[in-house]
Write a protein that binds this DNA or RNA. Structure first.
Lengths: 340, 340
DNA sequence: TGGTCGACTGGAAGCGCTCCCGGTATCCGG
DNA sequence: CCGGATACCGGGAGCGCTTCCAGTCGACCA
């Protein structure tokens, strides 16, 4: 009974109703809602009163249609594996993005553009102007999305510098610097026979980390031929480590382009009877939570993931407000634990 | 030069333009876009041709305004810690949700309703009808959002059964059953002096896991007074374990309501010179990735997180299409590793 | 005191789409 | 050959909001 009378599915009140109740024109009401000038103090207050009497909330859709600007931005994760997003990395990015979006009144749409269907949906999203801007992450080499986004009519910022196109706006972590730091640390500890397991070399991060590795070896004048390709996965790291052991049973250290792979590598190392860091020193990359719990705890390079999210969002915001931000490279740093 | 002429920022073509070019009325054009009946084969084709000549894409906002139904749903995570979303748990939920949404043409909005600001934003989202439905997760006891969502005018499904309100639509994991399973396993292995570290007992999952623990102890006729409150965090688990050791130095097993806490507990156990599972057996909950890499690898109870996401989305979809789905409880299962 | 200026005000024209509805052409059985 | 279904078709009225614009009305200066 009460139910029925009290929360009868009342339509949301419209601006007209507010205006009528306040005894002003719709235009006037609109002005006070958007607190624009040119409305007398009296009317302004009348409208405000009407607004909370009625519990009025502006209809975002109508507003978007009228102003031709969407109230949301999208964070798109591109890739080929549907479950890739499960990587805690992205969750942290989201937290960062959210932190800055929360200050605005933009909503966040998430688009997992894995699968052809997903990509089509993202394209749709870009073209329908449903969103006011896009943050695009983790596309590999020949990702068609990059080009597509590039020519979209909304602002786009890339997370990680894309390789196949000339991106103007991106924020990236200093992957190359971090890899170099790690490798230098290995060298400084007296190791000479140093290998690497790379990430996917069709991704910017994978390439950059390999370059950093080579940089360090070059200045030290060391052999840099000991590289095995990986794919960022635990299993991939394990088998790559196996190949490395075959090629160079006497290796002393390996820089591994992701912690996941490092975990796999640790496992095959243990199986092969090698001690870490006694026989071989290991340094990973990413500083994932699990890295603290491996045996031994993994020395790794940390990147400011949440900051990356924050900066992407900030960059997009400034782009959307007509500015022309510069690309940003975020610092990485070595986390000393026990594996090196 | 080329630039300027080729991608001059052409406005997206409108339905009127398509209609004109195809030589039909706007209504007819609309019909073929939404492939509704009552349009001749000839016109239908003319329109289709015009559509891809012009590269027409319907404006989602206008459509939403006209039909009064939004093209998106929101996944809201409520809580008090802004970084809580970083828990890989949610990422996996998102993957599940995305999987089913991908089949539709609904977009996913993410709302991290941590912080007062965030909650206000979510409330806004609910009231402006920007979204066609909501999936709400992880609210603790007195979460105002639950009530708010309940009286929202859009369909709501809860992830995890909320405690302070009578929810009609929710999907949850069988936390109680899982906890019971774990505890029974402990008992079956011959342990008698069994303790638990609970999760937050203002959350449904926390309570249910405690109940499952007590269930098992009750049927075995064992003492169930050894419970220490935790908060789902690693540190919380560590200190709770400390308190347990003080209270009952001779305890033989402990069921811990989350892997994070179990990791903390493992650490203080090691510091106290206790071996696992020799001196004390440990079982965690959640089966997080890091649980495979602790020493010893953690026996834990797994819940089908991605499925939880999928089912929430499915339930929301059916709700939105006017059906009346029943609540769903997803099975949990024990993962045998080495800590028990 | 006439004229000018600027702060207000509300009417009205959209934004791009859907969908109701009255109207015309076509086709069928009887 | 005729009445009435049945397939099409396009006009037009919105959806709820913003924003341009022409018009009021005091205030203020010379």
């Amino acid at each position: 009974m009460d139910q029925v009378t009290t929360d009868t599915p009342r339509r949301q009140p419209t601006l007209d109703e507010v205006a009528e109740r306040a005894g002003v024109s719709r235009s006037a009401a609109s002005r006070v809602i958007n607190n624009a000038p040119h409305v007398s103090r009296a009317k302004r207050e009348a409208v405000r009163r009407a607004v909370d009497d009625l519990g009025y909330v502006p209809n975002a859709t109508a507003r978007a249609l009228a102003t031709k600007q969407a109230g949301s931005v999208v964070l798109a994760i591109s890739g080929d594996d549907p479950a890739m997003f499960a990587d805690p990395f992205f969750a942290e990015v989201v937290v960062g993005v959210n932190a800055v979006l929360e200050e605005t009144d933009l909503e966040l749409m998430l688009s997992l553009a894995t699968s052809t269907r997903g990509q089509a949906r993202l394209e749709q999203l870009l073209r329908t102007h449903q969103a006011g801007g896009v943050m695009l992450m983790s596309l590999h080499g020949d990702d068609p999305l990059a080009a597509l986004a590039q020519q979209a009519s909304v602002p786009v910022v890339f997370g990680g510098r894309p390789l196949n196109i000339e991106a103007r706006y991106y924020v990236d972590a200093d992957n190359r610097g971090g890899a170099r730091l790690a490798t230098e640390h290995l060298i400084a500890s007296g190791r000479r026979k140093i290998a690497t397991i790379t990430g996917r070399i069709d991704e910017g991060a994978g390439i950059a980390r390999l370059q950093g590795f080579q940089d360090a070896l070059a200045v030290a004048g060391l052999d840099n031929s000991l590289v095995e390709p990986g794919d960022f996965s635990e299993d991939g790291g394990g088998t790559a480590m196996g190949r490395l052991l075959d090629r160079a049973p006497d290796l002393e250290a390996v820089f591994i382009a992701s912690d996941q792979m490092a975990i796999g590598a640790l496992r095959t190392l243990a199986r092969a009877g090698r001690t870490v860091p006694g026989d071989v020193a290991i340094i990973g990359f990413n500083d994932i939570p699990a890295a603290r719990h491996t045996t031994p705890p993994l020395t790794t390079v940390n990147q400011p993931i949440e900051a990356l999210g924050r900066e992407m969002a900030r960059m997009l915001l400034s782009l959307m407000s007509g500015k022309e931000p510069s690309p940003l490279i975020l610092p990485t740093r070595l986390i000393h634990r026990d594996s090196a």
